[in-house]
Design a protein around this nucleic acid. Structure first.
Length: 488
DNA sequence: CGGCTTTGACCAGCGC
DNA sequence: GCGCTGGTCAAAGCCG
């Protein structure tokens, strides 16, 4: 069913460094569904097997017991032959069903892809128009305040004219001497800008030179918190992290640990790990930033999910002119994970919390309980949290996950879940059934996030220049695409 | 010896 | 202006 992905712009699924099991599944399905010489193997093997059995049957009846060794445990009794024929018929029926489903899924994804392309074109045009308008309105000195203005924390104040969050990391990684901590108040803005401009010229990654007004620049501000029950000190998300700090945060006796991604030099992704004060078994992992390097399959699901969630969040925060989040839009955008997702617009960083400690539909505990503007999305279908849950279950040592009945690990133990016939009105059920396959889940998460997050997918981040167009207004892409994906 | 963790210090933002 | 807080740095130590 994923044979068509290479033509739908999901390179993640086609790269060689992805889950080989998934590819094996695809090979099987492609073999099963195509009419090339390979697909006949299944039938040929079965027919050949039957033929051999028939021959053995004759030999056995004629020559006696010496051929029993050749039987290799496969009896040539008529009932076994009938069983084989029945099995063959069943297999053919399954193949036909898969083929039909493959066709319909192909059409569905083609439609999604088409919508995505159209929306991306519109976003590009709108972005171009907005830039043109801003260039006319904004004065030069106001541009200098563009990044620094407001209440962003220090790491974003350090952003130079390029406005990229990687500056901080580049500085710390390339030359510690370049980063002077004696920024006395006497340092005026001109000096600071000059210094940062000099630093920008030394940056290794040319992709960092993005417009500060772009979502790329603000992506690191967005955070995705994942609350999950875990006895382990840190959930395993497939990435390599290096601890660079630990703090006792106010209101929580448990220390907060700070990690940064070390899979690539200058990767801006950081995460904070802290146990819940009320329930020490709950581990809150907050991700910030987007990887600028390829990710191993094990890390793809989490990274894509967080990137998609961050993209959703930013799309909502950026959609309104006054910077106030649009709950309705976000509700639509994040509906798939609504029973676990909490959005915070008032926190220092816009944060979406994916609460994986709950199964029932009730108000999740938010990491910002004192903040009045947390949006709790209404209950709805929960494909995305299922994906997240499944991914996390596969990749971590969670001990306390409460999985929904249809995508729990028990269901995932089946190597090839039986796919129910596609029904237009029960796409969610179909998706849920498909996602019961843990191998397919990671690939699907990547695919969905490729649609949702576009530029935020790790593979795309290798070329950040493409991120501007695809993520500059992901709001449109997200809501429409998700609507198409879920409701089409 | 290189990579990682620990931990005290530093810095900036924010509220009073 | 001052104190609190979150976030980060970097030296020191640990470990394989």
């Amino acid at each position: 069913m994923i044979v068509m992905f290479p033509t739908l712009g999901f390179p993640n699924l086609c790269s060689s460094d992805h889950n080989p099991t998934v590819l094996a599944e695809l090979d099987f399905l492609s073999v099963a569904n195509n009419s090339s010489p390979q697909p006949l193997h299944t039938n040929q093997i079965s027919s050949h097997h039957l033929h051999v059995n028939t021959g053995l049957q004759l030999l056995t009846s004629n020559a006696g017991s010496d051929h029993s060794k050749m039987d290799d445990g496969t009896s040539s009794k008529p009932e076994n032959k009938r069983a084989k024929i029945t099995e063959l018929a069943q297999l053919k029926e399954d193949l036909g069903r898969m083929n039909s489903e493959n066709q319909k899924l192909k059409e569905m994804l083609s439609h999604v892809s088409s919508n995505y392309a159209n929306l991306q074109t519109q976003v590009t045009a709108l972005l171009q128009q907005q830039r043109t308008e801003q260039e006319v309105k904004v004065k030069p000195e106001e541009r200098n305040h563009g990044v620094d203005g407001g209440t962003v924390p220090r790491q974003f104040h350090d952003l130079g004219p390029s406005g990229t969050a990687e500056v901080d990391d580049q500085i710390s990684n390339s030359s510690s001497g370049e980063r002077t901590r004696s920024n006395t108040p006497s340092n005026n803005k001109n000096d600071k800008d000059k210094k940062e401009t000099d630093l920008d010229t030394e940056k290794l990654n040319p992709s960092n030179t993005t417009d500060p007004s772009t979502p790329e620049a603000t992506m690191r501000k967005a955070r995705v918190s994942v609350r999950a029950r875990s006895e382990a000190p840190m959930i395993s998300d497939g990435c390599q992290w290096r601890k660079y700090g630990q703090k006792i945060a106010k209101g929580n006796p448990c220390p907060r640990a700070y990690y940064r991604c070390t899979m690539a030099v200058g990767c801006p992704v950081r995460k904070q790990v802290q146990r819940c004060a009320e329930d020490r078994t709950i581990l809150t992992t907050t991700y910030e930033g987007t990887h600028n390097h390829p990710l191993p399959p094990a890390a793809m699901a989490m990274a894509s999910t967080t990137a998609a969630a961050a993209s959703m969040l930013l799309s909502g925060s950026m959609s309104s002119v006054d910077g106030i989040m649009n709950p309705n839009l976000l509700t639509r955008a994040i509906l798939p994970c609504s029973n676990m997702a909490t959005l915070s617009a008032s926190a220092p960083f816009p944060t979406v919390t994916l609460d994986l400690t709950h199964n029932q539909y009730h108000r999740p505990q938010t990491p910002f309980p004192s903040q009045p503007q947390n949006f709790v999305i209404a209950p709805a279908q929960a494909q995305l949290p299922q994906l997240i849950t499944q991914s996390l279950y596969n990749q971590s040592k969670f001990s306390g996950f409460q999985l929904s009945h249809d995508v729990g690990p028990n269901n995932s133990q089946s190597p090839r879940p039986s796919l129910q016939p596609y029904q237009q009105v029960s796409l969610a059920d179909t998706v849920s059934t498909i996602t019961a396959d843990p191998n397919f889940t990671a690939a699907l998460v990547t695919a969905i996030s490729s649609i949702i997050g576009g530029a935020n997918s790790p593979s795309n981040n290798a070329n950040n220049s493409n991120n501007i167009n695809s993520s500059s207004n992901p709001n449109v892409i997200n809501s429409a695409t998700i609507s198409s994906f879920l409701g089409n």
